[in-house]
Write a protein that binds this DNA or RNA. Structure first.
Lengths: 199, 199, 199, 199
DNA sequence: AATGAATGAGTTTTCATTCAT
DNA sequence: AATGAATGAAAACTCATTCAT
């Protein structure tokens, strides 16, 4: 016999993704079995296939969902000054990532477990995110505000630095998120050569 | 019958580690089978166990070897000025990491595939590396040279930024390693608030 | 694709235990592979793990089941005279063991293939069985009916003698089970020094 | 490089057999690897093959050696009275077996790990031993001394009882070997119906 | 929508044995 | 006589996936 109560079809799907997210982040895609995900949800392994065609797609959907929301919520920066836009980007990146450590971790760690086709799609989304930062940097350099050479490198360096926060930041820890944002904004502003004036 | 080819006693051990290094970096520890490593070496899977007690130890040895050399070769900075010491650290980190992309990748990606005991040992080595950078930052702040708040955070941010280079830098690519070093040194010097003088 | 034949959910479990029983008795626990058990059942090796967590538990369950039934079915001897109780014990032991040669063989031969924990549990059951015989011997000695010194030794000697029957007795062979019982009862009665009366 | 001292060829052979004897008795033939035997001897696995063609022969040689010595040393009973001969047999069996627990254990437990051919040879030796006891019983019955029906069964029952001692007897334990011999001789003499007179 | 039984291919590891040295 | 490197086959067990119910 199956379920003991009414139908859960509309709630099991999200729970499957939540379980996969948690376990993939904790143990890695390869180390998590479909049985383990099923156990976390409280169903048998076979039931998962009502919600995902296979394990690979489950991973891809988590990563794509994360990137879609990231791109949708990031500040658009239309008509903003470059320094303001950069500050908005840094603030958003840190706040968004601090609130979704599992998604972020998976997005960086499990890229190589994507099929070639899925990898290409996620890479395109990621590049689109990097490009928006690079545009800000280019605008700032054109306006003589940022003293930097290679905007691509600086964009990557900034993102690496900001994303590194997730390896140690924990809500409720020694530092508040606002303090972290303040310190990183200091470092970024300085790194692009726009740090001395506002003091 | 026994092996079909000649004996390679003193050369197989290093080849096993080299094959594991390459494949772990390429596909991830969990996705690489002992058979795959053996095939890369040109030997049957059982023969690997003449050189490592198990797969876990193979991973640990690679990571420990990497960290040992990293710590042994990093600049000691005795009697150097903080700014010089920081520059030496940045230069060393970029050059050392650029030359060993596989070791670096594994050291950051496969931490969670270590057993608890092995993880603790590698973590201790990693912390020791971070501590040396933090000491430089503390000295620079004490001397009034660096304008930074939390030396721990800045140390982690710098290392994250520098290590991020490995995700895109390839020898022989658009930028030479020296150019990369110059740009990152600019950014780091600025990030710690020591960037205005040379202008 | 999944299984090629129909589902046998409620019948496969017992068949797994029956196959293991037969093969363990025939070839020894260590010499029987899970594949061999699966082949006997007519499934793939992996399917066995729907019915037992591992090979060790399969062995333990067979031995524990045997001992449980042995203890449940053995004569309780409440209020019986020692000589009657001893005769009931001998008769029961021979009849029970003659009907379950495989279980008996495994119970004596595979003790050392049990894990420490499982061994302790089986040993406790076995000791409980020996104790019941020893109680009969103690009662008989106290009543002046049995001329024996060490009841522990005599109990072990009787059980060894009786169990030895299984090395050669086959139903339908030269001797009927009743004849075997009669002869062994003669020997046991004599061995405890209660044999002279019937002459 | 090989041995560090002079040649051990004439001493390693016996040590190999001693190591195999000990380990087979302790863990069972199937559970003992050639590497384990080699380690016990202090040599690499390959070296064992200078002393035995294979693992199966190692087992067979141990069992055959045991049976050969058993048959050579057992009392011949020429011209002895049946009761004396029986007592001599019982005494010899207990004493011989008490002094060689490992050989005895292997001889009973590892029969099924012999190849068919080797099994037949060992069985022949074993039957020869049983026959000698049966001859004593037949002579005793013919002389009207033993009141028994089936000499084959009684022979097997006596051997089973006596051999069972090895499951619990330990030199230096609660009972001396002489006490054990005395008690078992009591039981055997009674069991064959020759027990009441000498009291 | 979910179960539970099953598959077939895979995993790491062990092992008896061989053989050039 | 012994080593150490290697083989090829096998072990126990896991896993993603399928499917009748």
């Amino acid at each position: 016999m199956a379920r003991t109560t009414g139908s859960h079809s509309d709630i099991t799907g999200p729970r499957v993704r939540a379980a996969a997210l948690k376990l993939f982040a904790q143990d890695g895609y390869a180390a998590v079995s479909m049985r383990a995900i099923a156990a976390e949800v409280g169903v048998q392994a076979g039931a998962l296939y009502n919600y995902t065609p296979d394990k690979q797609t489950l991973l891809f959907d988590l990563m794509q969902g994360h990137m879609d929301v990231l791109l949708a919520q990031m500040p658009q920066g239309d008509g903003q000054e470059p320094l303001e836009a950069l500050k908005a980007f840094v603030t958003f990146h840190l706040q968004y990532h601090a609130g979704r450590p599992d998604e972020v971790f998976i997005a960086y760690m499990e890229l190589r477990n994507l099929s070639d086709e899925n990898f290409a799609r996620i890479e395109a989304l990621r590049r689109s995110y990097e490009d928006r930062l690079e545009h800000i940097l280019q605008a700032g350099r054109a306006a003589g505000l940022f003293r930097i050479h290679d905007t691509k490198i600086v964009a990557l360096a900034i993102i690496a630095m900001l994303t590194g926060v997730n390896t140690w930041f924990r809500a409720g820890g020694r530092l508040s998120l606002d303090e972290v944002v303040a310190q990183y904004w200091d470092m970024v502003r300085n790194a692009v050569g726009a740090g001395e004036l506002p003091r």
